[in-house]
Design a protein around this nucleic acid. Sequence first.
DNA 1: ATTTTCAAT
Length: 184
Amino acid sequence: MYRRKMRGMYISKRALRKHFDPRNYPRETYLLCELQWRGSHKSWQHWLRNDDSKDCHAEKYFLEEIFEPRSYNICDMTWYLSWSPCGECCDIIQDFLEEQPNVNINIRIARLYYADRASNRRGLMELANSPGVSIEIMDADDYNDCWETFIQPGVYYRFSPENFESAIRRNCSQLEDILQGLHL
DNA sequence: ATTTTCAAT
């Protein structure tokens, strides 16, 4: 059914710590996806990072190479993204959703990618206003959900978001401004 | 450092 290309389902806590702590500024982007087709009890998880060799952002890579559409039932996806999508990826996601109107994407992001660039701000605002899309900064519940889903059972990890609550708050207010179309 | 970024000039 789904190919497991490039990466698998579980991720190391080391990688999660590095890439989803908003106080870090890593030079790669991680996309963790959990999806469920309505009517099915099983969910499916997959994670990947951007492909430097192909100069391909993580979002484009996931939608073009990993996701396998079905013409029936509704698909609910949650994405945990370490960087927010750039303007171009926002357009790609929007086009994808127009072609796949049975898919919903709930996007949770750890930090904002070049938030001072008008093209990125505009992309996020337009994407957030598309049907089937929600975009939010990851809060403590998101971190816990993400950890529970993507860390292998039996691996001990305690998440302590209090260490970066101020970074989360700053990103939330910045995203709020962007989605309201301020400073475009 | 209220820096750093999947980014080229």
